[in-house]
Design a protein around this nucleic acid. Structure first.
Lengths: 191, 191
DNA sequence: TTCTCCATGTAAGAAGTTACATGATTGC
DNA sequence: GCAATCATGTAACTTCTTACATGGAGAA
């Protein structure tokens, strides 16, 4: 269900083609929700059949067309309803924690190396999230700019801060994980 | 794949029946990896066919039997190999972040309420993880005790600390998320 | 003309969810 | 005798992954 709501949230900012959305879910929002191309196209058609979005065929050259989807009033209602409801937390399913829980079964050096790579990944992810947070605060991303054209200018700063805060959270969690992993490396080698 | 490795990790501590594992993945390890009964039984049979575990039928009363699975040498090798290899990070897929990213689309009070429930969940999850961390440090869980019977007593403290550290990490992340959500509540209402 | 990007699909399979179903055994 | 627990399954469905497949348009 969440992919559908993620798509609605993005299309609410700007109507887009499937191709645009594929790019988007590989990059920016990729830090929040990842989805491959083979999942996005069928989902868009299902959402259109369900009346949540409607597709508009634009000509691109003499033969090619692209289908630009926008959120219908019904889709808008569904999105607002979903956003306003607390949902059960997703069941925990982090392969890395399964790995860490069994580090006592392997050599200290090997566990140390696995943690090293994990730390690098988390730091990189935190850096990227913070960079994106700053771009949002500066209202310097395409999607935010387009979203703001439809909102009261008095709200622009508040909206930018809210979006930025989500990426600040992603970064904070990644830093916490990295620090935890460093502590784990110390535990592996001590005494 | 990860469910299989999670199962191997648990069975390495103690051979268990499918029923035991169902209980286990609903509770303790539920904070690390959750799996329903309908997934566990077929997975065990697939793993047995693959030679990773072997099932031993124990009689329970005159008619009933339970199948106790234990890790084969091949399963042990596979587990060690997987544990020693760094893996690509799991694609981000957190429905709550999708929700938070669109809080500007709904009423402040509604977003505030959703955050309130999120904070309560995270604090609860942090409390539970910390309680489990303490039980592990005190070597006071069934599974850890049984695991330690097969390990050099000189390593017992180190092993307990390593396991406990994983749950300390789960708790730290949950606290970070809760603090982030409180900051989000302040952002919603300010100015 | 060839390469990159635009644009959209399909198919097979693994993983996960929800719900239903059955029977034995133990303890009160 | 009855309830709770032990023990194991199946079926239908959604979601996600991996890989293959096709062709137009624009630029060098």
């Amino acid at each position: 269900m969440s992919l559908q709501h993620a798509l609605l949230g993005v299309l609410e900012a700007r109507p887009m083609s499937g191709y645009d959305l594929v790019q988007f879910f590989d990059s920016s929002t990729g830090w929040i929700w990842a989805a491959p191309q083979s999942q996005i196209y069928p989902t868009l058609r299902r959402m259109e059949r369900a009346g949540l979005i409607s597709g508009d065929d634009e000509p691109r050259g003499p033969k090619l067309t692209r289908t630009v989807y926008s959120v219908t009033p019904q889709g808008r209602t569904e999105l607002e309803q979903w956003l306003s409801t607390p949902h059960d937390p997703a069941p925990p399913r982090d392969p890395f924690l399964v790995q860490a829980l069994n580090f006592d079964e392997i050599d200290v050096e090997k566990a140390h190396a696995v943690l090293e790579q994990f730390i690098a990944e988390q730091e990189k992810s935190a850096d990227e999230a913070e960079a994106h947070r700053d771009r949002l605060l500066a209202k310097d991303t395409m999607l935010l700019k387009e979203r703001l054209t439809r909102r009261d200018p008095a709200d622009h700063d508040r909206i930018a801060r809210l979006k930025a805060h989500v990426f600040a959270g992603v970064a904070a969690v990644a830093r916490t994980r990295a620090e935890w992993a460093r502590e784990g490396q110390r535990l592996l080698t001590e005494d």
